[in-house]
Design a binder for these strands. Structure first.
Lengths: 232, 232
DNA sequence: CGCGGCTTTGATGTTCATCAAGTAAAGTGG
DNA sequence: CCACTTTACTTGATGAACATCAAAGCCGCG
């Protein structure tokens, strides 16, 4: 237990320390250690609500969260997902004083919550760190932009293929996984009705491309799935 | 002419100096002055091609450009427009070595082309400048993300209203302007077919909401247009 | 003057959201 | 632990929104 506590509270021994935090000196790491909190969020739990004041720099050590936004159409829309070792609030943090997106946990998610001013102080003195933050912001934003860009050119079957493949390749690194989202949430992510999400997943099942049992997905023919995601 | 030349080549007397460059010391401005070029691009001219190596920091002094990308659907798509005093390459510059988007001029556009390494050097020593660059990157990216987000919830009439209003409010600051883009380009910007762009503009003309004559647009009833853009 | 890009209108067909209606699963309170 | 309620999932039928196709006029430019 002693060791666990050590691991929790001292960033310099944290095994989830990212490439980004590796840029920091021992001294800088300790400043951050001293100004951080850690918290686990349960599946479904709200981490940040759109409109909240931005006070913290959020690092997702472990888990899965959705970045989402409530539209004037009275519906929730998922902008993007963040996984292990992602910096979750980066889209809003350096542009606004208030969060422009909500964050919710889709799994048990361990967050490091670091005082934003402390991060800014470290940035002011460590150029390499700063340039890496800039790179992370740019990549995070471009991933969203390019994801939406590609999505816009896919029909429904292509979009479903695309999410199933993303879960397999980017998140679970396996052809067999449990969906961390409802069918409704898939629809919110790729802009389609819940009914059609279900319909097309069923189609894929009937065609023998995937096996489905509730939230469990087994990809049987990844080649076809890739093909549909390309040509859709 | 002497004065004009002065204005062209010395950033410290440049009337288009942005809020961002105002953060710089006289010395820093001179370093930038010494490492920049200026060029005017004609309407339709390509400024940067997707895939080009990123060498320069691009500041649009005056004019209008489109940020676009050629899709696997063999069609061009406009990601965003940049206007006077925008930093045009910001989406790619800090994330990649190569441009991920093309830039083309839609008007006579005057660009300041500054050696990217020089900008980075100044950033390494001027924290305030750096934080402002970060803010610009974040805002540019979020504008794209939020624009697409809103667009996705609008029907065709709403989208056309939205672009017509944007040209009026954000770009020309007038209810009477000449479209700087073809009908086809409007379609590429808001994801709809050229035919429907034309059809709906015609509808608006017949309904007396706007007057149209070729590229010339006169907004007759901005209230209705706003209403359509909201509710669409 | 003829060719290609831009614009326009009408007709047709596909894709997808929505509605309706029902089953299954998972919480909730007595 | 069981009745109750809600949330998630599923399937079919219908219609609306939109892309696509087709055909033609227009304009600038070589």
């Amino acid at each position: 237990m002693m060791y666990k506590k050590e691991d929790d509270f001292n960033c310099s021994s944290c095994i989830y320390r990212s490439y980004l935090f590796d840029m920091l000196s021992q001294e800088e790491l300790e400043i951050i250690s001293a100004n951080k909190a850690e918290r686990t969020f349960a599946p479904g739990e709200l981490i940040v609500r759109e409109g909240d004041l931005i006070k913290d720099f959020l690092y997702l050590k472990k888990g899965l969260i959705k970045i989402h936004k409530y539209g004037r159409d009275q519906k929730d829309h998922i902008i993007s997902l963040a996984i292990e070792r992602d910096f979750a609030g980066l889209l809003s943090s350096f542009a606004y004083r208030y969060h422009h997106y909500s964050l919710s946990s889709l799994d048990y998610s361990e967050m490091c919550i670091i005082d934003f001013n402390v991060i800014k102080e470290v940035m002011a003195t460590n150029t390499k760190f700063t340039f890496n933050i800039i790179e992370k912001i740019s990549l995070a934003a471009n991933n969203v932009i390019l994801y939406r860009y590609n999505l816009g050119k896919l029909n429904l079957r292509g979009r479903i293929s695309s999410v199933l493949l993303d879960f397999s390749d980017k998140i679970f690194k396996s052809d067999c996984y449990n969906l961390p989202v409802t069918r409704k949430e898939i629809g919110e992510l790729i802009d389609m009705s819940t009914e059609n999400v279900i319909r097309i997943i069923s189609e894929f099942r009937k065609d023998g491309i995937i096996d489905v049992s509730g939230r469990e997905i087994i990809i049987r023919d990844k080649g076809i799935l890739k093909n549909i995601a390309e040509k859709g």
